[in-house]
Amino acid sequence: MRALVWVLAAAAVAALAIVPFTLSPVMVQFGISMLLFAVLAQGWNIIGGFTGYASFGNSVFFGLGTYGTAVAMVQFHLSFALGLVIGAAVAVAFAVLIGLPVLRLRGHYFAITTLALSEAVAAIISNLDIAGRNQGLILPLIRGDTMFYELSLGLMVLATLTVLWLARSRFGFGLIAIREREDAAEVMGIPTTRYKVMAFALAALFSALAGGIQAYYLTFIDPASAFDLSLNVRMIIMAVFGGAGTVLGPVIGAFLLSGVSEVLASYITGVASLFFGLVIIAAVLFTPKGVIDAARRLPRRGLAYFLDAVRETRL
């Protein structure tokens, strides 16, 4: 059963890899967005799903990745690869610096504090000459959707393999223990502060790399789009919808919800977001543990699975 899942996953990656050579450019563009969302959802999964810290700061890491890459390329004429590295380094450094004080807060307090980060950093960036103030930056134009697509796919695979390692490693075990009960985890010998900061930094790494790819792909960035809080909300919804704290859940959530929102947006533009909202409410009610959990237990439990879920959410 386990082996089968991974054979299927490998086949899925192979199938995704040939998309640019078989499907239309529109599909490739949709694919890039979907894959980058999967990376973001997986990044959130590390800090939110495994460690249990509902971060609203991941869109800041994404924004720092876009700006780090853009500033390196536009102002210093560095290569894209170097830009990605710089963007990621800035985001990771920021995660460590801000994580040390902020990760001392728990639950809602942590969420609210990280919520404020997006606005604060966007305001700072808007006043920096080197970052183009609030007009933003225009990156060199490149036509290479296939390159961006394959890069995004590679990053998504890397993020997922990292989470797979987490799920089996001592470090990941420590993160789960922190999520389940932090004070008990600490007296059991788990260096909670260090582990939380490391998880935050790892989440920042993947969010920033996704941001760097996005910046070069769109060739234009400004503070409003780079530090968009709704992006953070979407990655949380995707991760939770698929199954937070699982290896494949966030990827599946990102794929399904990207698909749903794309279909809704193209057929019934006006009410698309309403339907999207309904899909999410239904998911929270009936599959609160994510699509992955439902797929695993539904065959055995049948419809009773949904009833149990509704009972557990106490509605």
């Binding site: 075990f173 789960i176 223990a177 009960r181 008990a184 985890a185 059991m188």
Partner: peptide, 18 residues
């Protein structure tokens, strides 16, 4: 304070690991 989402064995494994 058991870790509620983990199995009984994994709860104790956490202690052994760290």
């Amino acid at each position: 304070k058991p870790f509620p989402g983990l199995s009984v064995l994994d709860n104790v494994t956490a202690g052994a690991l760290f």
